[in-house]
Design a protein around this nucleic acid. Structure first.
Length: 608
RNA sequence: GGGGCUGUAGCUCAGUUGGAUAGAGCGACGGUUUCCUAAACCGUAGGUCGUGGGUUCGAGUCCCGCCAGCCCCGCCA
């Protein structure tokens, strides 16, 4: 519908100039006229699109809005391209112009989708000349997401960033951008002092030999190290000097550090594999060699102020609890750097043209909303330092907390943080029990591998979909019962719609429709057609707003409309040409759902 | 104290540059199966959109005040 919408918009602009030539030149009214007034209809009974401008023009032009609407509508009917696409416009209410796309156009769009792998979603084109000229890819986007800490376990707090970031990456890739998915892991910092010291004592051979040491329980290892650090003065001192060794690049310490990172990476990868997440690891340590440059650059631009021994930047409006201006610390009083410094180095590197940087034009950070002020500060500094070229965007994509059903931050009963593995396992386990119950009541028998596959797919799909289907800005209430529910806006409901279509195929419905002879008569068919044609709009919205829930909402509505169609209109038992026509709709619906789910990172099933 | 986010049906949430009578799902109540998976479909009930002002032909949406909840705020990330 995007292309149709654009063509109608052009027709509308032509009509404006014909009907209101003077007003089109007048600065006040032309701003009303040139603004986009063609919007999707607010209700199906109003058609496909509506034009609202008559109401806003009425006062300026001093004519009743319905008269203005009538003149525009009359002119539109004289426009060749408009008449090709639309039925005659209707004036409604106080002055709305309702448009409905004619059936010929809708059918030709349906034909096109039968043979189009992208289902009518345009692929963005980027000029290769600009690339060469500027020495960078003007379509490269960096999405920074997931970002767990080395030597710690992934927990529920990493869930949203990982799932949302991955989905945004998939959508932008599909749109045609080159996406660099960066895992900004916490692989540097003072905590490595205690970890290395502990490692030295527990598995000393790790310091001299590569690859043979396994730390089976890294979490426990971290806890032990932390405990000793808190209780043992001598251990603390050793740890501190170990940090110095590491930063100085001492061979032994580096080896230990690498071992810990490697071990963690292996654990993370298990989760990423289960969730089908693809990421490039580039941790904080990567930026170490650029930190001094960051300080020097900021110094040369006179942005740094020394305060109590630390190098700081004071931003307007940033005030502490005491009401005094509060600095962002770029270099600590002991000469060390902190996360603001690393984040600044990362911004600089990511925007710098290759080979000295990534040459991205858009940076997206998917982290919790609690870091909003941190990113706002860091972004402001990058702007002050002139590191952000005018055609580049940098944005924080925040998301809310994961809460339990009590409305509080999700924890275990004993108050501990929930491990991500346990969350996945439980979802799959519950999906398995639900499935087994159903098999029993329906008197079906399935083998173990079927049960495994269905419960794994449903469990993972439920967790991902529950998260993605909510507006990411607000807090999200985690509930196994709701996400696994077979009714409502859930993954199982969408999966089931696909299973129904696969069932039609198994029962002799050929979904490879290429026939030119398709026709539609039922209202359920037209409703489904109109929804199918809106996929491009839904994806364009996610691309623009970075809100995956818009796509989820679309897929849910599509599933609802399909289920109504399936329930009320016979398919296999219909005679030709209805049968083939309806199979064509089934085919496009299945492809649309599969594509949509794949952009959410959710696998689908043929049977469940 | 400063800043951010949130406040919409009993519950969980949508609501796209301001547009027509504010929408789903769950839960409640009632109905549908000789037919492609009823994990579905149809219907009924349920709202002072936190609150008070303002802008506008028109406000859940924009602006200001207030109330409530959560989060962040000097050398952790």
């Amino acid at each position: 519908m995007l292309e149709i919408s654009a063509r109608l918009e052009e027709a509308l602009n032509r009509a404006f100039i014909k009907v209101f030539p003077k007003e089109a030149r007048n600065s006040k009214t032309s701003s009303i006229l040139t603004g986009s007034h063609l919007v999707p209809a607010s209700k199906p009974e109003f058609g496909d699109f509506q034009i609202n401008c008559a109401l806003s023009l009425a006062k300026e032009i001093k004519q009743p809005p319905r008269d203005i609407a009538q003149q525009i509508a009359d002119q539109l009917q004289k426009d060749n391209d408009f008449v090709k696409i639309c039925n005659p416009p209707h004036i409604a209410g106080p002055g709305f112009i309702n448009l409905s796309v004619n059936s010929k156009t809708l059918i030709s769009e349906i034909h096109f989708r039968l043979n189009d792998k992208r289902l009518g979603v345009p692929l963005k084109k980027f000029s290769s000349e600009k690339k060469i000229e500027e020495g960078k890819n003007n379509n490269r986007v960096i999405i920074d997401f997931s970002s767990p800490n080395i030597a710690k376990e992934m927990h529920v707090g990493h869930l949203r960033s990982t799932i949302i970031g991955d989905s945004l990456a998939r959508v932008l890739e599909f749109c045609g951008y080159e996406v660099l998915r960066l895992n900004h892991v916490g692989d540097w910092g003072t905590q490595f002092g205690m970890l290395i010291t502990h490692l030295k004592e527990v598995v000393p051979e790790a310091l001299h030999t590569k690859d043979i040491v396994e730390i089976s329980d890294l979490v426990n290892f971290y806890r032990q190290a932390k405990k000793r650090f808190d209780e043992d003065q001598i251990f603390q001192n050793k740890s501190r000097s170990e940090v110095v060794n590491l930063q100085a690049g001492k061979q032994e310490s580096l080896l230990a550090w690498q071992l810990l990172c490697k071990q963690s990476r292996k654990e993370f990868q298990k989760i990423y594999d289960r969730l089908d997440i693809n990421l490039t690891e580039r941790g904080e340590s990567f930026y170490n060699k650029f930190l001094v440059d960051v300080i020097n650059d900021l110094k040369s631009k006179n942005l740094l102020i020394k305060d109590q021994g630390a190098q700081c930047i004071f931003l307007d409006g940033v005030v502490g609890k005491d009401g005094k201006p509060q600095p962002i610390i770029i270099q600590k009083s002991d000469g060390g750097f902190n996360y603001a410094t690393t984040d600044l180095a990362a911004i600089k590197y990511r925007l710098t043209t290759p080979p000295h940087g990534d040459g991205a034009f858009r940076l997206i950070y998917v982290t919790d909303a609690g870091q909003a002020s941190h990113f706002s500060g860091v972004f402001q500094i990058a702007k002050l330092a002139n590191w952000i070229p005018t055609d580049c965007q940098i944005e924080h994509v925040p998301f809310g907390l994961v809460q339990g059903e009590d409305g509080k931050k999700l924890k275990t009963r004993s108050g501990e943080t929930i491990r991500l593995v346990d969350l996945l396992d439980e979802a799959i386990q519950r999906a398995r029990e639900d499935l087994k119950d159903r098999l029993k009541t329906e008197n079906r028998s399935e083998n173990e591998s079927f049960i495994d596959k269905v419960s794994t797919t449903v469990g993972i799909a439920a967790i991902k979909y529950a998260d993605l289907s909510q507006n990411r800005v607000s807090n999200y209430q985690f509930s196994f019962d709701k996400m696994l529910s077979l009714q409502g806006n859930t993954a199982p409901y969408l999966l089931y719609a696909l299973v129904r279509i696969a069932g039609i195929s198994r029962n002799g419905g050929d979904l490879n429709v290429s026939s030119q002879n398709i026709q539609f008569n039922e209202p359920q068919e037209w409703t489904l057609i109109r929804k199918l044609l809106q996929l491009d709009c839904a994806i364009a919205e996610v691309e623009k707003e970075l809100l995956p829930n818009r796509l989820c909402g679309y897929l849910f509505e599509l599933s609802q409309i399909f289920n109504r169609f399936y329930d009320q209109v016979p398919i296999l038992k219909a005679s030709e040409p209805e049968r083939t026509s309806r199979l064509a709709l089934c085919s496009i619906t299945a492809n649309t759902l599969k594509l949509g789910m794949s952009l959410l990172g959710i696998p689908t099933l043929e049977r469940m």
